[in-house]
Design a protein around this nucleic acid. Structure first.
Lengths: 343, 343
DNA sequence: CGGAGCTTTCAAAGCGTTTTGAAGATGCAG
DNA sequence: CTGCATCTTCAAAACGCTTTGAAAGCTCCG
């Protein structure tokens, strides 16, 4: 069933049928009604490819997911994408995802641009020496970053959380409870967000006149076993921490299992504060959640990002327009923290 | 840069340029060379939408991800998709993902079909009373299921693991170690895969003449806290299990933390066997992995599924052709199992 | 009743490819 | 030099829609 056949059935021109279905005003109410009914009856919907070609709009947004060197796929991606997907559905956009080895991400962007596959792109996980935004700017595709690029905050559109402040606050919270040795299990510090988090941690320590011990700091992919491993190393050391600050729930679970296997009671003998991205299958909810956390839903960030990209960048059509959104993270008290034990 | 401009620059017709780029034989070698070079130089790649319209092929595969009632997003999806994505990239296919509320999945399929958005679809997570395959068959879209549909195994194409046998084997393994009370933490038994797993568990018990106690069986979303919760309930009961069989690594982590907090040493006082989908951020690898497991990579399943869908269903073009692939799961010995303690 | 001013409808041109059917070169035998 | 087969190349149609510019059908007033 295509437009031609449908209009023949209705004894109308393709123009009129098309306009009736797309809500143009120059169609009489009865005609529109008739068209809509017949279209529903025959299950007609315009061929997406033809429409794309005719309008020059693809109604699709692209996401490029690089697999990190160790084949690790970030669960945060998925949660973000799920959020964004809801907004895409709302506005009739499709979501196109490319999974690529980390090294030829650039080629993918080139191709997407040349073939005009999408109307906009969301760029994930900016790194330390981020370059993708330059390429995309050159290619002229509207794009929005999930996370800021240090040094280029004013050149791109982004949605981000206030990582530095959140981690500073969390660290201060632990300091206020009397903890002086706080193990820090961070994400991969090749990533921009992880750098900011470390800065927050270090700032809080320095402001409190607390020494900054590099031995207490760890940076790696955020997996549970790696969390366990580093936490165990620390607990076995001669001068173990009384608290952990972790960059993800998975790391926190790792730290907890390390502590427990060391015979420590979490929330009493040792405290844990974690960042909580609100990953759906790693819930940390309820009125009194398991982990004390700095919480900021990455699914919400995805929704926000999608909304801004579509409405403020694509629909606006101004290639120089910028839009940013900084999300604050709440510090939520859970059962994993308490005053530092008196040594 | 489009075909018209490119061919003008080359003093050739669009036909010839198109043929040169698409590898048709009726173009002289020198001409082809000249065309290819110029195309590269000018960064030309055919507009995807135009090509789709002209060829009638979208070169895209669709995935519909339903959010379950409690907003839970299955991490297994992501791993599967990542695997499939690699194969799509290899064959020049795009991956289109729709995130939808659980209830209007059907409408999405209708629309995808009517608008001709994709060449094929992969259907995730068949349920107990699965109906989607009937709709898709009616719509005439090539599709492949990730997981079988009980009672319709012969009507659809699918890629699946031998769930029943794997869980039977795992249970027998625990029985052989002397365990008689085995707690079973299963996934949501609205799902086909979970039903098969329970059958495997029950079969093994019955074959061994071991009583089947419904109190030992639990079915829920596969999250860590739910695993902890049910494991704790069991351990507190008057007749606690000496082993757990779990349907996912997250449930196993939950069970482990429950056991540990009960003062039990995993692998000695209590055994845990889990299914391991090989989720990248929940690694359970190494020569002597943390959990004894039945392992089957869902990422590999994704690759397989993509390959079969493209090569055997779409390329073949025969709507009645069926293809299936059953993956066996290895039972891998880890550190979480040991002989049943003598009571 | 004629025509201005609306409303409603239409035929045809585009969007950028691929593909069809035909024509223009080229080569070689006669 | 002609004629025929073989390579190359081409102009134009097709894909299914949206959109432009024009025409047809009304209404209403002088």
């Amino acid at each position: 069933m295509n437009l031609k056949q449908l209009s023949k059935r209705l004894n109308l021109s393709q123009t009129t049928v098309s306009r009736a279905l797309n809500g143009y005003p120059e169609v009489s109410a009865k005609t529109r009604q008739r068209v809509i009914e017949m279209a529903r009856e025959l299950g007609y919907a315009p061929n997406q490819q033809a429409r794309r070609l005719a309008t020059g709009k693809t109604m699709a947004i692209g996401h490029v997911l690089p697999r990190s060197p160790n084949e690790m796929l970030n669960p945060i991606f998925m949660e973000f994408i799920a959020g964004a997907g809801l907004v895409y559905a709302k506005y009739g956009y499709d979501m196109m995802i490319s999974v690529v080895p980390n090294d030829n991400e650039e080629a993918i962007y080139q191709e997407i641009a040349a073939r005009k596959k999408v109307d906009g792109i969301i760029v994930h996980a900016p790194r330390k020496d981020e370059q993708r935004h330059k390429l995309l700017k050159k290619l002229g595709i509207p794009f929005l970053m999930h996370g800021r690029i240090t040094g280029a905050e004013d050149e791109t559109s982004w949605v981000d959380i206030n990582n530095r402040q959140a981690f500073e606050r969390a660290t201060r919270f632990l300091l206020d409870l009397g903890h002086r040795r706080i193990g820090f299990l961070n994400g991969n510090e090749e990533m921009d967000f992880a750098i900011r988090r470390r800065e927050g941690y270090v700032n809080a320590l320095q402001n409190a006149g607390c020494p900054v011990d590099p031995d207490l700091m760890h940076s790696s992919e955020m997996t549970e076993p790696l969390g366990t491993q580093f936490a165990i190393n620390l607990l076995r050391s001669s001068n173990p921490p009384t608290a952990f600050l972790t960059s993800s729930i998975t790391l926190a679970i790792g730290a907890e299992s390390a502590a427990t296997s060391h015979g420590l009671e979490v929330g009493k003998d040792i405290s844990i504060v974690t960042h909580d991205d609100v990953i759906s299958f790693l819930p940390n909810s309820g009125e009194y959640p398991h982990f004390t956390c700095i919480r900021s839903s990455v699914g919400e960030a995805g929704q926000r990002a999608a909304q801004l990209l579509i409405k403020d960048l694509i629909d606006q059509g101004d290639p120089d327009h910028r839009v940013t959104h900084l999300m604050e993270a709440d510090l939520i008290l859970g059962r994993s923290t308490g005053p530092a034990p008196q040594g």
